[in-house]
Amino acid sequence: MFDLTLFFISAVLTVIGAIMVITTKDLMHACIYLLASFLGMAGLYLTLGADFVAAIQLLVYVGGVVILMVFAVMLTGGPHAQKQNKFGMIKTALMGNIRTYTIGGLTAVVVLLMMVKLYISIFKNYTAGELPNYLPTVERIGKSLITDHVLAFEISSVLLLGALIGAAIIARPRKNRIN
């Protein structure tokens, strides 16, 4: 009962948020709808018994990525930035127009058909067996990370270090080279 309620609320939050991300005309609002979608995703992870993944989802996305996105929106002139480049050549609205949405929609239909083709056998053949109980996953994930997946764990730390240094170097203003 409780699981079903949580699932329903989270699913509605996720789907509505994702749809609003692509329909809203305001970039800042899109970030907030993305936040709603991420919160719903955390709830979905909980209904799947993945407590650690849900907590990390909250920590990384809600605490990090969304604030970073909103911050970048502000540092690049806000959502109401100029609608053409400095030569005045391109009149396309920054958030897309009818043509781009048509292209996107058609591609989405193609991708959807492909995914339906992939999923149709699962929908037909899969029957839910006895589901395991919700168990704490933190210990198992921790042990798995330092035994089976230790190489991926170390490589991801190197990746994060590289991302940190790279982002700091790229975003540093170099005044003498701005043309």
């Binding site: 989802q57 990384v60 933190v138």
Partner: peptide
């Protein structure tokens, strides 16, 4: 069992609220 991570994650909504 993930209380600390949950707390850090959910309390960063306040920072977002301040910015918004």
């Amino acid at each position: 069992n993930v209380g600390v991570v949950y707390l850090i994650g959910i309390s960063s909504l306040v920072g977002l609220a301040i910015f918004l």
